[in-house]
Write a protein that binds this DNA or RNA. Structure first.
Lengths: 114, 114
DNA sequence: CAGATACTAAAGTATTCACTTGACTATTGA
DNA sequence: TCAATAGTCAAGTGAATACTTTAGTATCTG
């Protein structure tokens, strides 16, 4: 993989891991501390911290530390990047579909264009 | 990563690679053979074949072989799975936002509910 | 038919990933 | 004050990834 790793790479990569998706899903219901996040996850706290750091690095969540507790919340705008890519794809193949339809229409002498 | 690898895992994983996203983007403009796909990519044909196989396995594309050439096309429905997850997230945090707004509204004596 | 084309399969390699363990630092509450 | 809590850092491990090279097999084309 030639590296000029983009936001999109990092976001997809982050969300490819089920644990990290679970974290994002958890935070969908509101902010949580790292240990709260860790509770339902079957791994050490250290591992969870690593996932949280990765999610923060790619901006899918934000965190802030108050005393000894780090509170995490999702950062919804980042998912827009994903939506953007997806929308581009949709537009692309809809266009493609239309073009195909036009060609078929052109080739069929049975119907004339309105 | 505890393995009960879902469709979503595989799709995100597939799209986390820039080469594979490039392939999906290429196919957005219409079907292509494996060598056509390989042309703009800076790697061996064998490597491209591997990416194509992975994309086919997770249903992001379909392929069929005619003679010695394999033609690839995107399978748009699979991206729906992604859209589905994204929409869930959006609904979740919109709900969360509304709940927060409601609480704030409740706590503020300056305005009464309509 | 002979040689080029279009892929395919298998094996090897360097890197990255998802963890764990263990040791350490703040903060908090009894 | 002192032990429990909440998190952090660093190093190590085994598995997975993204390639490569090499050696094929069909299928065309002249």
């Amino acid at each position: 993989m030639l590296d000029h790793s983009t936001d999109l790479d990092n976001i997809f990569q982050a969300l490819a891991d089920p644990t990290r998706r679970a974290i994002v899903e958890q935070l969908g219901t509101g902010p949580k501390s790292v240990s709260e996040i860790a509770l339902p996850l079957d791994m050490t706290l250290a591992a969870v911290v690593q996932h949280v750091q990765l999610l923060e690095n790619c901006q899918l969540i934000t965190t802030q530390k108050q005393g000894r507790v780090r509170t995490c919340r999702i950062k919804p705008e980042t998912l827009k990047t994903l939506e953007g890519w997806l929308n581009q794809r949709r537009r692309q193949w809809e266009q493609n579909f239309d073009r195909l339809a036009a060609v078929l229409d052109e080739q069929s002498p049975k119907r004339k264009k309105p």
